[in-house]
């Protein structure tokens, strides 16, 4: 079997809390191939963000391992090389940029940390990145203050790209944005993925977005992986009740979608009664 690009192998993560231990993830194994957009789906408490944190090295798994191209990803003192390869785009555009640093300074940080390019060329490279995410070059000198949510998110994308990463963890990157802006940012993310041959771990609860962009899907419920597979297959014939319940709950805007969704509603009613 070929070596996986990113593999999560039997990972359990427990957090200590005031009332004892919380199991955030339990015995989770998934595999992300190079170049795919892998959606990680779940509601609050599903463990989806914990999984993102493990991939990024924000904390260590309690047991099991996360491997990137065969190499075990630890948390503390992760080598710069691996930090550079795995980047993050966060949910909240308001806190993603330091209000006391200019847009250019935020993007440029990666060049200085990883010694990317000639010093003299870095300003030019910042301008190129801004252009790539659809912002004018003079934004480099601006403070994040006057920027809209969508613009901030574009800057955050440029900052991640500055590292020239291979894998990007996207943690609900558009859920705080208005519909029109969301569509534009999603388009941008898709374009960038193809141009830079990136792999995405796309954490979200929005199944319509998942249907739009994901190649493969892993569904989490209460720290457990309930289903993982090709997006086409899961949307056509979801195997678990939980996935069906999620699908059945999506508010939709057209009759075709409603018909598609309501296929899952009949099954859902029984499940809900059982849970209550």
């Amino acid at each position: 079997m070929s070596e996986a690009f990113l593999s999560v192998e039997g990972v359990t993560k427990r957090f200590r809390s005031a009332g004892g231990e919380v199991i955030a993830l339990e015995d989770v194994s998934i595999r992300v191939d190079h170049g795919e957009c892998h959606a990680i789906i779940g509601e609050s408490g599903s463990g989806k963000s914990t999984l993102g944190g493990l991939i990024l090295g924000l904390f260590e798994p309690t047991s099991g391992s996360v491997r990137f191209k065969g190499e075990i990803l630890g948390a503390p003192r992760r080598p710069l090389r691996l930090k550079r390869a795995i980047q993050l785009i966060q949910q909240n555009p308001l806190s993603a940029l330091n209000p006391r640093r200019t847009v250019g300074q935020s993007i440029r940080l990666a060049f200085d940390v990883h010694a990317i390019g000639e010093k003299a060329q870095r300003g030019k490279r910042v301008a190129e990145l801004l252009g790539e995410v659809g912002l004018p070059a003079d934004y480099a000198l601006r403070s994040p203050h006057g920027l809209s949510g969508g613009e901030r998110q574009r800057v955050a994308i440029a900052r991640a790209l500055a590292c020239e990463p291979e894998l990007i963890v996207l943690d609900e990157p558009t859920s705080a944005l208005d519909v029109l802006v969301q569509a534009r940012v999603l388009q941008l993310l898709m374009r960038i993925r193809h141009q830079h041959r990136l792999t995405y771990a796309f954490i979200t609860h929005d199944l319509a977005v998942v249907r739009g962009i994901a190649d493969r899907v892993s569904v989490f419920e209460k720290g457990r992986l309930v289903e993982s597979g090709l997006a086409d297959a899961i949307f056509a014939t979801p195997q678990s009740d939980y996935t069906r319940r999620l699908l059945a709950a999506v508010p939709v805007v057209s009759d075709e979608e409603a018909r598609f969704r309501d296929r899952f509603r009949a099954a859902e009613v029984d499940a809900e009664e059982a849970e209550d």
Binding site: V179, L180, Q182, A183, L186, Q187, M190, D206, L207, A208, V209, R211, G212, I213, A231, F235, L247, V250, V252, V253, S254, E256, E257, F260, R261
Partner: peptide, 12 residues
């Protein structure tokens, strides 16, 4: 602009 539950792709 709303992504569709029943089809792939993101609206332009």
């Amino acid at each position: 602009a709303i992504p569709r539950l029943d089809q792939r792709g993101i609206p332009d």
